[in-house]
């Protein structure tokens, strides 16, 4: 069981660099002079927060179905 938790946590943590990168990319897209950065991107932390929540919901679905697979 411990292995499973470590594996799951690892999966969860491994998502963080992706989310950070995605959020930074999103910020970069928001930088052009013609756009107001605040209007397009809510910021790195907010993007990370939202994506983490999405990952968490996905993890819950995996927790429910993992016995069947």
């Amino acid at each position: 069981m411990l292995k499973k938790i470590v594996f799951t946590l690892g999966m969860f943590l491994s998502m963080l660099p992706f989310t950070a990168a995605l959020a930074q990319a999103q910020d970069a897209v928001a930088q052009p002079e013609t756009l107001n950065p605040d209007a397009l991107s809510p910021g790195v932390f907010v993007s990370l927060l939202n994506i983490s929540v999405l990952v968490f919901l996905g993890w819950l679905i995996w927790l429910y179905f993992r016995e069947k697979s």
């Binding site: 968490f56 819950l60 927790l63 429910y64």
Partner: peptide, 13 residues
Amino acid sequence: SVFLLLQIVGFLR
């Protein structure tokens, strides 16, 4: 809310 969702997954299983 995070733990509530985990409770529900445990219950459904």
